[in-house]
């Protein structure tokens, strides 16, 4: 690009093309949704199967997948930061939203450890999944995530009406609808934007 005088039309075209270029460079958030989507989905369905079908007493051990996800997230985040040449407001907002969500999940787990895990916990978890994906979908202007968030809220309400052991299946369904399916669609969109 040389330093030339422009007509007003050319100026507007230039502004538009540059803004589009930064939009294309948004980091690929789909990987985090996929990893955490599958970890929590396997956790929920695994715990349901171990508890209700196989009758394993230590059915909760399946949640040891969570530390694996944390290690992966830290490793991936470091790798991205190393190669990062641009920092966007959307990227920063997403980072803070999901750090906050992660801390909230941890706090909720601590509260429930005190209250006892037999209390109806899953509607609260599902409601929070909905909140996270609804906000993320609006940040990224990606409708499937927004719809996923709304459906998760509906599932949170629905889960109240089923026995405790089956609420976990509502959580698995919420994760599938609000994380996993939108994440694959998001990845597809990112690929088509980059190509």
């Amino acid at each position: 690009m040389r330093d030339e005088q422009l007509s007003p039309e050319q100026s507007l075209q230039l502004i538009q093309s540059m803004i589009n270029k930064t939009r294309q460079d948004m980091s690929d958030d789909a990987i985090y949704f996929l990893v955490w989507g599958w970890i929590t989905f396997i956790g929920c369905t695994g715990q349901f199967i171990l508890k209700n079908l196989v009758h394993v007493e230590q059915h909760y051990l399946v949640w040891w997948l969570v530390p694996v996800g944390i290690v992966f997230t830290i490793w991936q985040g470091r790798k991205e930061r190393k190669n990062q040449k641009v920092s966007t407001y959307v990227g920063e907002s997403m980072k803070h939203l999901w750090i906050g969500m992660g801390i909230s999940f941890f706090v909720l787990s601590m509260i429930l450890t005190k209250l006892g895990w037999g209390s109806p916990v899953y509607p609260f978890f599902i409601m929070m999944y909905g909140l996270g994906t609804f906000i993320s979908g609006n940040f990224l202007r990606f409708r499937p995530l927004v719809i996923g968030g709304v459906l998760a809220w509906a599932l949170a309400i629905g889960s109240v009406f089923v026995p405790y052991d089956y609420q976990i299946l509502f959580a698995a369904a919420a994760i599938l609808i609000s994380y996993i399916i939108p994440a694959y669609l998001l990845r597809q969109r990112n690929k088509s934007v980059h190509s």
């Binding site: 690009m1 040389r2 330093d3 030339e4 005088q5 422009l6 100026s11 230039l14 502004i15 540059m18 803004i19 270029k21 930064t22 939009r23 460079d25 040449k85 641009v86 920092s87 966007t88 407001y89 990227g91 920063e92």
Partner: peptide
């Protein structure tokens, strides 16, 4: 109102901050 300076400003208006090398690549 100059091509390259406007391009730089258009890039920076939509991000929080950007490295020199990123701006060089995008503005060619």
């Amino acid at each position: 109102h100059s091509q390259l300076r406007l391009a730089v400003m258009s890039l920076l208006i939509s991000v929080k901050e950007a490295e020199f090398t990123f701006i060089r690549e995008k503005t060619n």
